[in-house]
Design a protein around this nucleic acid. Structure first.
Lengths: 213, 213, 213, 213
DNA sequence: TATGAATGAGCATTCATTCAT
DNA sequence: TATGAATGAATGCTCATTCAT
C-alpha cells in the first residue's frame, strides 16, 4: 500500500508514470513487463519506483485501479442507469453508450480489455482477480434483476449465464475494436441492436420458433 | 522436428517429459514457461532436452501436436460425423461425445483449452497460430454448411459469428470443467441439450418469440 | 555507450575492470572471451557488468577506445609531426619515439597490437573494424604524401604497398617486443635506423645496385 | 594418436571427414569450430569421430598435417630445388611456381594460409606451433644458404629477417589471393619478379642508391 | 568397429529487488 | 523525499566429451 506516497505526487508526474506502466503491461502482460522500460519511459529512477510502490504487483494493481476509475467515470459502471421498467431498452441504451465510447476511446478500451484478459491467463497476482470478479459481480446483479422481473431465464446456472454473457461481451468488443474503421458512429450504434439481440437470444425468456414451422 | 530421437525414447520417459512440459506450458504460457522447470520435473539434463528438441518452440509444438493427435483420436475432430441431414442432431451428438470426453479426461481438456487460449495472447510462435486457426477453420466450415442448408443465420458477419460460437464453446467447456464433480456422466450428457440450445439461439435461423406474447 | 555510469566509477575499480577485460580479450579474442572470467577477475557481479555496459561489444569497444586514447597521448598518432621537408628524417623521428614507447610500455603495446590483430580474424564487431581501418587510413595518407614528393615508389598498387608496410611494422614491433631485455633504450633507438632503412628499401624510389657490380 | 584407426579408413570416407573438418576449422577457427557441424557434414556419428580421433585438438592436427603433405606434394617444400648457383633465379622460379599454384588451387591456398594464421592467434594447441615453426625453419635454412654465398645480408638478426620475409610472403599471397580475377596466369607469373624484387630489396646485400643522385 | 544417447559446464543477457546515501 | 549503484538468480541455448551397447 504505497498509495499515500504516489497519490501525493505531482499529477503530471503521476500521469506519466501510470501511462508508461499501462503501455508496458498492455504490451507484454504482467510477468513480461519490464520495470526498467517503465521507469525509462516515465523518466523516474529505480529507487523512486520502489519508493512509490511496494513491488511490481502493487504497481500493476494501481494501474488497474486507475483504469477502473476512469471506466467508471466514462460509462458509469456496467449497471448504472439500468433501473427503469424498460429493461432491454435500458440495456440497449447502455450498450449504445458503450459502443460510442469504444469508437471515441479505442486505445483506452484496448487497455481495459487487455488488462482484464490478463487475469484469466493466470500471470497475475491473486489480488487482481478480486477486482475483476467485482465487475463480474456487477454483471451478475443486473442479470439477477432481469430474472426478478421475468426478463431473463432462470433455467441456467447463474454463474454459467454470467460467464457466457461476459465472454460474449468480450468477443463483441474485440470484434468492434478491430473493425472500427469500417463504421461511422451512427452505424456503430446500430450494432447495439445486434448486440442486445444476441443477449436476448441467449439469456431472454423466449421461445425459439423455427421460421420454417 | 525432434521426431526421430524423441520418438525412439522409452515410452515412460517420453510421457514424463511431455507431462512435465505440458504442465509448465499450461501454467505459465509459452513465453514464461521455464525449460529449467521442465527438465527438473522430467528428470532429464539440459543437454538431453536439446538433444530431443531443436529449441523451446519445437518442444512446445511437439506437446501441442501430441495433444491434437489425442484430441483427434478421442472425438474425431470438431466436424467429423456431422454430415447427415439432421444438422442439429449431429451437433448434439458431437457435443454429447465431447462432454463425455471432458468428464473422462478433464486434465487433458484443461491442457488443450489452455494451449488454445495461449494463441490469442500472442506469446506463441507463428507456427502454433496456424494450428489453432485450422481448428477455427473447421468450425467455420461447419457454420458455412449450416448456412447452406438454411439452418444458420446469414445476417451476421461470418467472422463475428464464428468467434462468438468459439468463445461460447470455451466458456461452456471451462464451466463444465470446473463443475465436474457435480454431475454424473448421464447428467452431463443432458447438458448437451443446453449447449446446442445456446448454439441455436445465437446462430439459428429463428424467430425469437417472447413467451408473454 | 556505457560512458556515464562506467566513467563515474571509482577510478581504481574502473582500472580493475578495464584491466581484466583487456587481459581476457587479448588472450582469447573477442568471441571467445568470457564475461564470466572478466567479472571474476574484476571482482564485480554479472549484474554490475551489465549495469556499466550495454553488452559484450560495448565493453570491448570501451576497452579498445581507452587503448586508442592512450596510444594517441603517447605517440600522438602515426602521422603526427611528419610534415617537414625531411620526409625520411621525420619518419625516423617518429619511429624512434615509437620504439622508446614500446620499451617503456611493453604491456600496453602488446595489448594494442593484440587488439588490432583481432580485426583480421573477423571475430569482431563491425564498429571495431572501422577503428582499425582508420589507422590503416592514416598510414595510407602518409604513403601518398611520400609519393607526392617523390620519395615513395608509385609502381606498386597502393593497397599492396600499404599492406606490406603495415605487416612489416607488425613484425618489427612484435620482434622488438620479444627481445626487449636485450637492448638498452639507446640501443633500441639505434634500431630506428634499421626500421626506416627497411621502409626505404621496400617503398623508396631507389635503384638497387648490387655491391659486387 | 588415433592415426592408425583413421588411416585404415576407406579413403573416400577419410577424404570426406578431412574436407568437412577443414572447411569448419577454416570458417570458424579452432575454438569456434563445432564438432557437431563437422560430423554432420562428414556424415559420421559422434562416436565415430571420437573413435578415430582422441579429441578436437587431435582432429585439428590431423587436418593440418594432411594439408602440409599436400603442400609438399604440390610445390615440393619451400626450398626444394633451390640449390643451383643462380640463387635469385632459383627463388624466382620457385615463386613463379607458387603463384601458378595459387591461381590453380586458390581454395587450397586459402585453407593452408588460414590454418597457418590460426597459430598466431593463440587459439590453437601448442603442438601445432611446432608444425609451423618447422616451415619457418625451412625458410630459415634457405636464408642461411643465401648468406653463405653472400647474397643475403648478415647485418640483421636472422630471426628478425626470417619473420619479416615470412610476413611479406603472407601479405603478398593474401593480396594475390584477393586479386586473382584481375590477372591471367601469365600476368601473375610476371608478379614473381615484383615479389623477388621485394625480397632482394629487403634481404639482399645491396647498396641503395637514390635515383636522384 | 561403430553408434548415438546423455550430460554438465559454459555462454550472453535480463530481471526485480535492496540499500546506502 | 529521492536516487542509482549493486546484485544473484534466472533465461534459452551450445558444446566437447563419455560410455554402454
Amino acid at each position: 500500500m504505497p498509495t499515500k506516497r504516489f497519490e501525493n505526487l505531482d499529477p503530471d508526474k503521476r500521469k506519466e508514470i501510470l501511462h508508461a506502466a499501462q503501455a508496458e503491461f498492455l504490451k507484454n502482460g504482467y510477468k513480461d513487463a519490464s520495470l526498467n522500460t517503465i521507469i525509462e519511459e516515465a523518466r523516474i529512477s529505480k529507487g523512486s519506483l520502489y519508493y512509490y510502490f511496494e513491488d511490481k504487483t502493487d504497481l500493476y494493481l494501481t494501474v488497474l485501479g486507475h483504469v477502473m476509475i476512469q471506466l467508471q467515470k466514462k460509462i458509469g459502471g456496467i449497471g448504472a442507469g439500468v433501473y427503469t421498467e424498460n429493461f432491454w431498452g435500458d440495456i440497449e441504451d447502455y450498450t449504445r453508450k458503450s459502443l460510442r465510447m469504444i469508437k471515441e476511446n479505442p486505445d483506452f478500451v484496448r487497455l481495459a480489455r487487455g488488462l482484464f484478459s490478463l487475469i484469466s491467463s493466470g500471470n497475475v497476482p491473486d489480488a487482481v482477480a478480486d477486482v475483476i470478479n467485482n465487475w463480474k459481480g456487477m454483471m451478475t446483479s443486473i442479470v439477477v434483476r432481469g430474472q426478478n422481473i421475468g426478463e431473463i431465464r432462470t433455467d441456467l446456472p447463474l454463474g454459467l449465464l454470467v460467464n457466457i454473457l461476459w465472454s460474449l461481451g468480450e468477443t463483441m468488443d474485440f470484434w468492434v475494436l478491430s473493425h472500427l474503421d469500417e463504421f461511422t458512429v451512427d452505424e456503430l450504434e446500430q450494432q447495439a441492436k445486434v448486440y442486445v439481440n444476441l443477449w436476448k437470444r441467449i439469456a431472454g425468456t423466449k421461445t425459439i420458433t423455427d421460421n420454417k414451422d
